[in-house]
Write a protein that binds this DNA or RNA. Structure first.
Lengths: 232, 232
DNA sequence: TGCGGATGTGAATCAGCATTCAGTCGATCC
DNA sequence: GGATCGACTGAATGCTGATTCACATCCGCA
């Protein structure tokens, strides 16, 4: 007959799973996805390599969870910021600048999760995340277009370009790490808004109003199912 | 006594080196950098795996050459198009649309060379290439700024964002592959120009005038030294 | 034609890493 | 207190793919 799982044991198991996830995430945030290897992760989580497999069926699965939890957190933040904005254009601006500010606060992790290919199996998930972010922006663009705040354009085509501009402009290998965060976020948001057809003066006004999320830091959000977190 | 290298032998050696390079490039163009492995490359070049090492000291070196030759070709095309333009703004537009059109004609290869990490040793080179492209654009932006054709801005920050927008918008995993090439190039160029502060109407005019390079195809340019091809 | 160095071959070697598993240990149950 | 269960351990296994190397072949030379 199977043993009962004590309250205590249940908690310990859950904590350990989270510890492993955190270890994986922190390694990704420090050294990129390539450095997320079972032995180092286990080491950082203070357990043996084999133990990781009691919690995650495979390394890919572990990485998938890292991506998913990051995705959930980032998408939620973007939505929240945008929903709190007074109008369609400021919602768009808030959405963009929130993503930008958070990406900048967690450069390496964001880059790892969004831009570092790991394995063909995982790539679909990473692309899903990108697609979700672009989708969020595309949605806001479309709202702004139908309210006549933006010139008519193909939001499905423009949104990925905006995402690319944000990633490369802020956290890509060419981005200059020096500048003030606030300033960098404002500059890139301005650029993105202009790209979508907001005239310069108006864009500057919007950018100036944008709330800048303070140090969001990558606290691990409660885990969600893979599909759930990304659903648009 | 050392043997003389016959005319014939010299040619054959050079041809074979080129064949290997072409094989590597075509595999990258079909299936990405990850698929560039010694055995498949050798197979495509109709030689044994070991032979590759008579021509290239390591796989990394081979990939470096693929990147370099691609970089040389693309940079030259951008410069040529821009230099032929009548004014600073059309030079900028030509530079951007040339890159866009060529990237679109060779999606996979461009993506492989610019966006697929291979190995830490190689990544510096790939980043160099990105930097060179961004540098080329930054230069044109600065010229336009000093001629009062663009609002004052930090070209070093804006150029990488433009590169990101082009890559993600056109050939990234989210880019819709369906559209007409001409149309897609024009749309993304328009977006990029607006991002830099060109007002919509003016941008549309510039875009309409831009020459669209016809099917550049990845014919292998004469090999150059690594540094030489990328020098800005 | 026959010698010797240059090239080509591809199976064996090596290295990095995910994954497994036989054995250990602590917790639960009676 | 023992009998079990289930988690933990970490060395061994297995796989993938770059690199090597002993041997075969080719080609210029006399």
């Amino acid at each position: 007959m199977a043993y009962r799982r004590t309250e205590n044991v249940v908690r310990r198991l859950a904590e350990r799973a989270q510890t492993i996830l955190d270890a994986a995430q922190s390694i990704a945030a420090e050294s990129g996805m390539g450095a997320v290897q079972i032995v180092p992760v286990a080491h950082r989580a203070d357990i043996a390599a084999g133990t990781v497999y009691r919690y995650f069926p495979s390394k890919n699965n572990l990485i998938a969870e890292v991506i998913t939890s990051t995705a959930g957190r980032e998408l939620a933040a973007m939505r929240e910021a945008a929903d709190a904005a007074p109008g369609p254009l400021s919602a768009l601006a808030a959405c963009i600048s929130t993503f930008a500010a958070r990406a900048l606060n967690d450069r390496r992790l964001t880059w790892a999760v969004l831009a570092e290919p790991v394995d063909a199996d995982i790539d679909t998930l990473r692309v899903e995340f990108r697609r979700a972010i672009a989708g969020e922006i595309a949605w806001r663009i479309n709202v702004a277009i139908s309210g006549q705040h933006l010139p008519d354009q193909d939001a499905r085509a423009a949104a990925p370009a905006v995402v690319g501009a944000l990633l490369e402009g802020l956290i890509g290998p060419l981005a200059s790490p020096g500048r003030n965060v606030r300033e960098a976020v404002q500059a890139i948001t301005l650029l993105a808004l202009r790209a979508l057809g907001v005239v310069d003066a108006r864009a500057r006004g919007l950018v100036a109003q944008c709330p800048l999320p303070q140090n969001p830091s990558a606290t691990s959000a409660p885990a969600q199912s893979l599909t759930q977190a990304i659903r648009a």
